[in-house]
Design a protein around this nucleic acid. Structure first.
Lengths: 270, 270
DNA sequence: ATGCGCGCTCCCAAAATGTGGGACACTCAC
DNA sequence: GTGAGTGTCCCACATTTTGGGAGCGCGCAT
């Protein structure tokens, strides 16, 4: 089955075992892989079938089904793009996360008081997934978007969620984060990173000094649920100009209070 | 296959033939139906399998695959919810629509000048699908959300897109819209509806007087692309209090100009 | 203007894939 | 406790999927 090896190779990491896993749904899994493929901008049959390792006729069959169900949008001879059903389901998926609805008013209050950009994110594998964003009102827009992923270890959000991750896994996440970096980031060297994370845990909130995006600093804090585990994090971000170290130190407690208020609504400490 | 008839009925229009269509992807189509099922809040195995018409073991197999791929989130003995991959793909699907990115600055400008809620939507079957929303700054929040659907014929957005729909299909869309209405809407009777739509076409923008949501009025205008066809629409909405008829008449031309500016960027009239 | 690559739509035999029945351990709610 | 329902196996059967092929049409590049 060269298809499986191809898929495993495409996935890149420890998914090699995955391909062996839940068997009995080849068509379904292939269809989902096809969606990812289109999500990555591969919009023509040839590219898709070569990336999936399926023949043209098989690929066409799946494409037609996905188009018929509204998961793909199709313009003949112009290619395939993600369809309206995915927009709908994506919105539903957000609604179904209790933390989003509960956090929103708290985040709005934070945004009003600080004028900075507010984020809510959860862990998704080795990434942070943004669930909510309230743009700052200083006229300088962050590039982040709901549904976007960022390296877990190199964001204020991710570092706040590190609080609940066993120390022996920090290094792996840190190393993974380095593989994401483009030009405009200067991550800390490891020993310093670890030390700063320890300090953040003692303090109760995290700092990010342009480590992920040049010119942007942020402050983050973890959100916990009824089990006491960290299930999300919030952050405040702004251009360096508005984020002097002294101001960050003032924002920290505010972040932490907001995060704790959300946590309490989720049942934390009750 | 009663599942297919149910699906076809849910789709509403000429999809009845569809169920016979693209065969050879049963597992994929079932898996997608499963996602919709979970999206509708059916989160337990029993409910899902009965709605899909599949046996427990088959349902479990699909569920496990979807969880493994991140399309579903699973808490043992607590049920299934839509997963992070759908949030990601939903966001990508939005990015892949050129109209969203092109319209955004125009919509932001409109929002700043009017302080009302701005919407961008496209047609999705018999519904309007919101692609963008900029909340008004009058403190009164609309319930609408990106990714949400509304009855096509009963919204300012939908009526603006009616401009390009052959007159002989208006009635069907109107009737379909009536099947959506909850308590808080008073749709116009048909003859009046048709007359007002004619007037709107002559004028170049649409009005909606609380027909879809009680207490909310809106003004809409169509967006065209290079082909000249209407591919989207924009609208301004606010509580009745801020939407006197006189003000709506002033907003109309502004809406139309913004819509046309977006259309031109999409290649309209070039 | 012409050609070629590729997209779209059929068909069909072979076989790989998915199905569903059954059994057992476990969890949760009543 | 008890029972309904979930999570996890296994396996023989046959339905479903596969992919090769052939034809037509579109559009890009030369």
């Amino acid at each position: 089955m060269d298809r499986n090896t191809a898929l495993a190779a495409a996935e890149g990491n420890d998914q090699v075992l995955d391909s062996q896993k839940v068997m009995g749904t080849q068509t379904l899994v292939r269809g989902l892989a096809l969606l990812e493929c289109v999500a990555d901008g591969v919009s023509y049959v040839k590219g898709i079938s070569s990336r999936l390792g399926t023949r043209r006729s098989t690929t066409h069959r799946m494409l037609s089904s996905l188009v018929a169900e509204g998961y793909l949008h199709h313009v003949p001879y112009r290619g395939y793009t993600l369809g309206p059903q995915l927009i709908r389901l994506g919105a539903r998926a957000l609604e179904q996360r209790p933390v989003v609805g509960i956090a929103r008013p708290h985040l709005e209050s934070l945004a009003r008081r600080t004028a900075d950009t507010v984020h809510l994110g959860v862990r998704d594998g080795n990434a942070v997934l943004y669930l909510e964003k309230i743009p700052g009102t200083r006229g300088l827009e962050m590039r982040s978007r709901i549904g976007q992923q960022m390296p877990f270890a190199l964001t204020g959000l991710g570092k706040a969620m590190m609080f609940a991750i066993p120390r022996d896994r920090w290094r792996a996440l840190y190393e993974d984060g380095l593989t994401w970096v483009s030009g405009d980031a200067h991550p800390l060297p490891w020993p310093e990173y670890e030390a700063k994370l320890d300090a953040a845990i003692a303090r109760g909130w995290t700092y990010d000094f342009e480590e992920n995006e040049l010119g942007v600093r942020c402050v983050g804090a973890p959100v916990r649920d009824i089990s006491g585990g960290v299930i999300a994090a919030i952050s405040l971000a702004s251009p360096v100009f508005h984020m002097a170290e002294s101001r960050m130190a003032e924002l920290g407690p505010m972040l932490r209070e907001t995060a704790d208020a959300i946590s309490r609504e989720l049942g934390w400490g009750s």
